[in-house]
């Protein structure tokens, strides 16, 4: 079923480079610049230098952004403006094939960006353990835990106003407060449970634990199951949305 590979070609050219350049710039500015300030005063964050602390957080955070982004405009656009899905459905492909192709492409894109970024982290010396390799699937799952449910939402949208809201009140706060830039333990007590409940927290937790090699088994399993469950539920809901919009 090589048609997925071809479908991927569709958005191939669009900004793969910028999507890993951003976290690297962030890492340079925040990790090295801000990090030197942090390290000078308190020496470590959670026992490691700020750069080392920040790098895996950005890995998960970037994965979330890519997963979310790719499941918003591209999906609504394919249904409303481009009609590309309808072209696919005139062929032997079924709605589930279209959905799998779309989500599969997002996963491939996540894999590419995350592995490049992880490589850069290794060069920075931010990967402390061989378990760090598993941070790649963890990052992909983090991205997909957002992509699949958001795909279910986007497929139903008639206009793009919802995306701005989703960004402003969803992705951006998560990016800032889910343990990416500072440990959740720094948050006010009443906010912490909310942070612990967010998928990004679990993504960050996994990625950080894996690259630092200090993850304990059961919490890790719990977080992984949580992310996988989100992907599964999202996929199921997206299947319903896609059928509703594409079969008329």
């Amino acid at each position: 079923m090589g048609y997925f590979a071809y479908q991927y070609k569709r958005t191939w050219r669009s900004s793969i480079t910028t999507s890993f350049l951003y976290p690297i710039l962030y890492l340079a500015a925040m990790g090295v610049g801000l990090g030197s300030l942090v390290d000078k005063h308190s020496h470590t964050v959670d026992g490691v230098s700020y750069l080392i602390f920040l790098a895996p957080g950005l890995l998960a955070g970037t994965a979330m952004q890519i997963g979310g982004n790719e499941a918003m405009y591209p999906i609504m656009g394919a249904i409303k403006w481009m009609k590309t899905y309808f072209a696919m459905l005139a062929t032997p492909l079924r709605v589930v094939d279209v959905l799998r192709g779309q989500l599969g492409w997002i996963a491939v894109r996540l894999a590419i960006v995350s592995s490049i970024y992880l490589g850069v982290m290794a060069v920075f010396g931010a990967v402390k353990s061989w378990y760090g390799i598993l941070a790649l699937p963890a990052a992909i799952m983090t991205g997909m835990a957002f992509a699949a449910p958001i795909a279910a939402y986007s497929a139903r949208q008639e206009r793009d106003v919802g995306f701005t809201t989703l960004y402003r009140f969803g992705l951006i706060p998560l990016f800032l407060f889910s343990g990416t830039f500072f440990p959740v333990s720094q948050l006010p007590v009443w906010l912490r449970p909310i942070a612990y409940a967010t998928p990004l927290y679990h993504g960050v937790f996994l990625c950080r634990g894996l690259v630092l090699g200090n993850l304990s088994l059961w919490p890790a399993v719990g977080s992984a199951v949580y992310l996988v469950a989100l992907v599964g539920i999202g996929y199921w809901l997206a299947g319903i949305s896609f059928k509703k919009r594409l079969i008329v």
Binding site: M1, G2, Y3, Y6, Q7, K9, R10, T11, R13, M82, K83, T84, F86, A87, M88, A90, T91, P92, L93
Partner: peptide
């Protein structure tokens, strides 16, 4: 073979790639 009333080409791809992709959908 279907020629829909509204064109549903992939505007971002080249002419040739549109045919290639579509052919791949038919395996």
């Amino acid at each position: 073979g279907l020629v829909p009333q509204e064109d549903s080409l992939d505007l971002e791809l080249t002419v040739m790639d549109n045919l290639m992709v579509y052919g791949r959908y038919f395996d």
